[in-house]
């Protein structure tokens, strides 16, 4: 349970997932932020209206998935590192997953790393497709990973051995 272990329940994760129809259309944001905290930079970072306006800074993010194009800008703005982008249309059995990364080493493009789930357990080998900086003043890297489609909603971190 999130409050006891830091791991959200599958119910919580399901509740913030875009619909299968939206996922079938292409890259889309997934925001795993389940607690009302005084924080809103995800909303101010998105210029497309992917996040519905916050009435109060403590609001939980609420999404308009139709407006999101999966650009990933909001990933680097979130201090909670709670924002990801999934593209299930990448290949038959592979999906693209964008995650924030603030550790060394920053993996090389094309390298194979371990994909970890929300508990830090290894689920699969994944390929690093792209590495980009979240901005000139932001040292967070944004990694695009090629992951087995069945784990697109489970892998949330990596380990570089």
């Amino acid at each position: 349970m999130l409050k006891k272990t830091g791991v959200p329940t599958s119910g919580q994760v399901e509740a913030v997932k875009p619909s299968p129809e939206r996922l079938a259309e292409g890259p889309v944001v997934i925001v795993e932020c389940f607690q009302e905290i005084p924080c809103d930079p995800c909303y101010t970072a998105c210029k497309r209206g992917g996040f519905l306006p916050f009435e109060d800074i403590n609001d939980l993010p609420r999404m308009d998935f139709a407006k999101c194009n999966g650009c990933g800008i909001c990933i680097g703005a979130c201090p909670g590192l709670a924002v990801f982008v999934v593209d299930e249309t990448y290949a038959e059995d592979k999906a693209l997953l964008m995650i924030p990364w603030e550790f060394l080493p920053v993996p090389e493009e094309g390298s194979i790393v371990k994909g970890l789930n929300r508990e830090g357990d290894v689920l699969a080998d994944v390929e690093v497709k792209k590495v980009r900086s979240a901005g000139s003043h932001n040292q967070t890297s944004i990694l695009t990973l090629i992951v087995p489609k069945k784990y697109a909603h489970d892998i949330r971190s990596i380990r570089v051995d």
Partner: peptide
């Protein structure tokens, strides 16, 4: 904040 907890948890640190 639970988002902080989740980010150390997924690096394999048990709480």
């Amino acid at each position: 904040y639970h988002v902080h907890a989740s980010k150390v948890r997924r690096m394999g640190v048990p709480i």
